[in-house]
Design a protein around this nucleic acid. Structure first.
Length: 120
RNA sequence: CGAGCUGGCCGGGCGGCCGCGUGACCGGGGAACCGGUCCCGAGGAAGGUCCGGGCUCCACAGGGCAAGGUGGUGGGCAACACCCACCCGGGGUGACCCGCGGGAACGUGCCACAGAGAACAGACCGCCUCCGGUCCUCCGGGACCGGCGGUGAGGGUGAAACGGUGGUGUAAGAGACCACCAGCGUCCCGGGUGACCGGGACGGCUAGGCAAACCCCACCAGGAGCAAGAUCAAGAGGGUGGCUCCGCGCGAGCGGGACCACCUGCGUGAGCGUUCGAGGGCGGCCCGCCCGAGUUCGCGGGUAGAUCGCCAGAGACCGCCGGCGACGGUGGUCCUAGAUGGAUGGUCGCCCCUCGCCGCAAGGCGAGGACAGAACCCGGCCUACAGGCCAGCUCGUCCC
């Protein structure tokens, strides 16, 4: 699970990331990533959106748990101050953790700008 | 052994690595918070939200009309539309199962299709008397055609055709009359707390179904719901501290930024009383009563956040006593989820069960293992569910 500091817990953060952030999609999910223009010292935060289209409650919680565990290993690589929202698509219900992780990595690499430290 | 009925229970197990939530303890800190150890952490339906309660707030002047729920009897329960036992009706050889089980000889309404006729019944075929005509005749009458009538016994339709069987009677027939039977009503006797059961007498000969159609009868019921509700509190300025990031410096450190906590003062005006008052509330409507946006004047502290509510309870387990049973009484032991963008997991290995393929076999490989995720808490109902375990009972067959 995600440590508390990396959780996105307010609705404004969600709308901000979805409206302003860069977007990249895969077969199972869509990623919205907003990165701050200037330096920020807030830890990067991540949130999940799993709608009822994905499935009933049991399926939705399973998808959310898998995604949270996958995000735990990746949220540290994001630039500080970033807001990441991962939206699950209906095919995610049938996907394995491995498949979800591959999709997540592909989408993240496409919408991440040059990492803060690497470009310099 | 085979087929079946009923009740109860389980609903994958073990381990490695990496994590999350509540709480307790220890350490650091003024606090926020950080680190460590330990405990606990989804279901039989957590589901549908269909009933009943607890809890909370509001309403508790009244009267009239309208309107909801329940429906055999007796118990159980905090309460129920639930549970138990019994009664009645129906099904099964049986164990047992099913029942939306008050009133249709008060009123209104409906009863498809078929059928002549479907609720003050009804003449299509048929049967019968009489009248007219034609024909035949062994002169008694008969056949056919038409007409006025009689007939609900027979045919045929239907879920259902206005009791059944036998007789008297008649032109033919009919509860028109009689006997028995079924059913109905009234009364009496006996049994039962009661629903009701058993028996007898008399009566009129017969009365269709639907009340989850209106309706009538009896009983029950204020409204809304934890987003209930309660408490503290916005926001931005300054200061101090914590934590973290960036820059500079060899370094102690310095400067800047985000967030959090505390202190300090600044400060928008929620609310209350009052004048006039659109409108609203009192479960729906009317009378009646109450409140009241906005506005005049006056007095003055709170919606976006946080905390509580929020988990020790009609509590769980094990005995003993009473009861056919639901259940009640009593003794002991235990503490057993409380999240809030929402924890209760992710991943890997072994085992178990089922299926498929390969193999003589040991075994190997692959696929699958249901329904489903707490959100204030209980008692029920209903619905979904791979597979499995236990107990009691019934019927059939065989053996002793």
């Amino acid at each position: 699970m995600l440590p508390r500091a990396h959780r996105l817990t307010d609705g404004r953060g969600f709308t901000h990331a979805v409206r302003r952030g860069r977007r990249a999609g895969g077969r199972h999910l869509v990623v919205h990533l907003w990165e701050p223009a200037d330096h920020s010292e807030v830890p990067a935060r991540a949130g999940l959106v799993v709608s009822k289209a994905v499935g009933p409650a049991v399926v939705r919680t399973r998808v959310k748990r898998r995604l949270r565990h996958l995000l735990r290993d990746r949220v540290g690589m994001l630039r500080t101050g970033s807001i990441l929202v991962v939206r699950a698509l209906p095919p995610a219900a049938e996907a394995s953790s491995q498949a979800l992780g591959a999709d997540l990595d592909r989408a993240l690499s496409r919408c991440t700008t040059t990492p803060a430290g690497a470009s310099a």
